[in-house]
């Protein structure tokens, strides 16, 4: 029983990282419909932000706390630049967007290699995140790593902040309006181009936060974003395009399934099982967990 609980917790923490990445994608891909293959490199930018900040500030704790907002800003700014330079010209051309952003992704990876070198680097975790909480002591002990709890907390905070922004603020209403009906939003006096840029800023900034979280559980490298971005896209598809609630459920479900299968089989078998489960689920429910319910899509 403790083993299942322990693996479930590991799965939840994997799901929390996936969720942080998927939250950004839920805006740029799920809501705006932009397949941004460079989203993974915004994660990388967030992670390298921690590395750079730690070079100038000795205290790992202080540097982590500074890195969180800074990574959000750095990745957000990169997203805005990408949207302004390229993506806004390609909104009605998804295949072109995919290819262009894939090219940008490769360029950003190379840029990271040129600046930081090809080998992975590490960021030091603060001392207050290196411990563990033991819930059940004895032969079958259940321990929860502080770092993974921190990531879980960060993901929950990001979900709450994003939900409140989208549901309760004027900016959130504008974002949802532009996503649902761009022409009508423009005809209602909303500067849709500006809203696109803000949406991209938030979505990309969330990827930066995910990058900070990843530094707590693994090394920092030029391809770290690429390795996880496909999983995040799967979370969005399984959750239902543009559905935040669906993304939350899908992220944790996929994380737990992966962790439990990894324990009972191998990493490769677990990976295949998760993909087969997703294919089977989408055969049964192609629209994902949640879907838009209207009398008319107008």
């Amino acid at each position: 029983m403790t083993v299942i609980l322990s693996q479930s917790f590991t799965g939840i923490s994997i799901g929390a990282v996936l969720l942080l990445i998927a939250l950004g994608l839920s805006l740029t891909f799920g809501q705006m419909g932009v397949i941004n293959m460079a989203h993974g490199e915004f994660i990388m930018a967030g992670a390298y932000t921690v590395y750079v900040v730690q070079k100038s500030i000795d205290s790992a704790g202080t540097s982590l706390l500074i890195s969180l907002p800074l990574a959000f800003l750095v990745a957000g700014a990169m997203g805005v630049l990408l949207e302004w330079l390229l993506i806004r010209r390609l909104y009605a051309r998804p295949l072109d967007t995919l290819l262009v952003t894939w090219g940008v992704s490769l360029m950003l990876q190379q840029l990271a290699r040129d600046i930081f070198g090809a080998p992975n680097v590490n960021a030091q975790a603060p001392s207050w995140l290196s411990g563990r909480i033991t819930l059940v002591d004895g032969e079958h002990s259940l321990t929860l790593a502080h770092s993974r709890l921190f990531i879980l907390g960060l993901a929950i905070a990001a979900v709450v902040a994003l939900t409140l922004t989208l549901r309760r603020t004027s900016l959130g209403r504008r974002i949802r309006a532009v996503v649902q009906h761009r022409d009508l939003a423009e005809a209602s006096g909303i500067a849709t181009g500006r809203v696109d840029r803000i949406t991209f800023f938030i979505g990309s900034g969330l990827a930066g936060l995910a990058g900070v979280a990843l530094t707590l559980v693994g090394p920092i490298g030029p391809t770290m974003g690429t390795n996880i971005i496909i999983d995040a896209f799967l979370v969005i598809v399984v959750g239902g395009i543009g559905q935040l609630r669906g993304a939350v459920i899908a992220a944790f479900a996929l994380g737990v399934l992966q962790a439990v299968m990894e324990y009972s089989t191998t990493v490769s078998v677990a990976r295949v099982t998760v993909l087969v489960a997703i294919v089977a689920f989408l055969q049964w429910r192609p629209q994902g967990i949640y879907t838009l319910r209207t009398r008319s899509l107008a």
Binding site: Q180, H181, L184, G189, L292, A298
Partner: peptide, 23 residues
């Protein structure tokens, strides 16, 4: 652009009872 024309005093009710369906 349309949003600036709206600020200048134009308003538009499009064909087909269009709304923002999830709002």
């Amino acid at each position: 652009p349309a949003h600036r024309k709206v600020r200048a005093g134009l308003a538009y009710v499009p064909q087909g009872q269009q709304s923002f369906p999830q709002l």
